[in-house]
Amino acid sequence: MLIIEQMRSEHFSDAEQTLVDYMTENPQSLENMTTTALAQITHTNPTSLIRVAKKLGFKGWTDLKEAFLKEWHYLNSNYNSIDANLPFEKQDNLLSIANKLATLEHNTIQDTLSLLDYQNLMQAQEKLLKAKEIKIFGSHTNAMISQDFVTKMRRINRNVSIASTFHYIDYEAYHSTEDTCAIVISYTGENDIMLKCIDMLRERGSSIISLTSIGDNTISKLSDVTLHITTREKLYSKIANFTSNTSIIYLLNLLYAVVFTHDYDVNLEHIIEVGQIFDSRRISSDIMRENKTQ
């Protein structure tokens, strides 16, 4: 759940509600405002700020302010120039649709990039490199999206498999070990099947990397590392999963890249060596031509 949503659903005292109302109506004013100044403007006591923070699950006012402003900046970024749910209209011509989808995909990748945290990415790299096996847990759609990641990882001799809801997902979680790194993909972060798998994975001592939406969702809480999917789409009143799919693909490509770069020269040499042996595709352009060596 987003902080702004928690603020709407939580019960506050009159003084606390005054603070919350000011935050939601004047977020741009909070950046450089001290607790004393905020208390004076809202005619409240500084201790009320602490109580609001505690009710929303934060240790103190500073943590709440930082998280709230980060969320506000994200939700109000320039991304909204194209609607993630209805990126084109029925009167748009074909080239207009093509242009809008290209812009949407570019915006989505930049949006996902803005949500990345260096420490989280480094932790994800460590867990993937340490694992003897990597398992992807996701819905049937997310499993199909993940297939290219599996192919890439297997090309550099990494043991990666997919456990989707259409296969024996519970068994895959049960047969995982402390040498397993699970990548759990869920846009909502509240998928019951995925939550059941996470409970089992935690019992087995497996490490868990989640790809999920922003906000305080359950899957994110239960994961060792979370990488955020761009969060702009409604559940079903949309043309397609354009942005969430693009975001997931980008994050999986990124995870492959951080594994690859750890042994960059070795991995590149291995891919070239295997390609020289097995890749016999015919080409139609010199751009594709390889200079094979024996």
Rank of each mutant, 00 (worst) to 15 (best):
T231L: 02
H167A: 12
E190M: 01
E203T: 00
I193A: 10
T231P: 05
L195S: 03
T188M: 03
T177W: 11
H175W: 05
I229M: 04
V225Q: 10
L211S: 10
T165C: 00
G189Q: 07
D170L: 11
A182P: 07
I198T: 14
I208L: 04
S244G: 11
Y168N: 13
N191T: 15
S210Q: 06
M194R: 05
N191L: 01
R204N: 15
T218D: 05
E172A: 06
I198P: 02
G215L: 09
A173M: 01
I219F: 00
H175C: 12
S210H: 08
T243R: 03
T246M: 13
K221D: 07
S210I: 08
K238E: 09
I239M: 14
Y250M: 13
T226M: 02
C197D: 13
S186D: 01
N245S: 15
I214N: 09
H228D: 01
Y171G: 03
I209Y: 08
K196A: 13
D179I: 03
S237C: 11
S176I: 07
T230M: 08
T226G: 02
D216R: 12
V184M: 07
T212D: 06
I169M: 11
R232D: 07
G215V: 10
K234Y: 11
A173P: 02
D179N: 14
R202G: 00
A182D: 06
I208M: 03
K234T: 14
G205W: 12
V225A: 09
S206G: 06
A182S: 12
L222P: 01
S186Y: 00
L222D: 07
H228K: 10
T180M: 03
A240T: 15
I209V: 11
R202K: 15
H167V: 13
A182R: 06
L222V: 04
L227Y: 11
R232T: 10
C181M: 08
H175T: 13
T243M: 04
T218R: 14
H228Y: 15
D224P: 01
E178Y: 06
C181D: 09
L201Q: 03
D179W: 04
Y174G: 00
C197V: 07
I209A: 05
I169E: 08
K196S: 15
S223V: 07
N191F: 00
T230K: 06
E172F: 15
F242I: 13
Y171I: 15
Y187E: 12
D170N: 10
L227D: 13
A240Y: 15
D199I: 02
L195Y: 02
F166G: 07
R232A: 08
R204E: 03
A173D: 02
I209G: 02
S244Q: 12
I198K: 06
N241H: 11
S244A: 13
M200S: 11
D192M: 08
T165I: 13
L222Y: 13
T243Y: 04
K238D: 06
E190Y: 04
S237T: 15
T180Q: 01
I198H: 00
I214Q: 12
G189S: 05
F242V: 13
R204Y: 01
H175V: 03
Y187R: 10
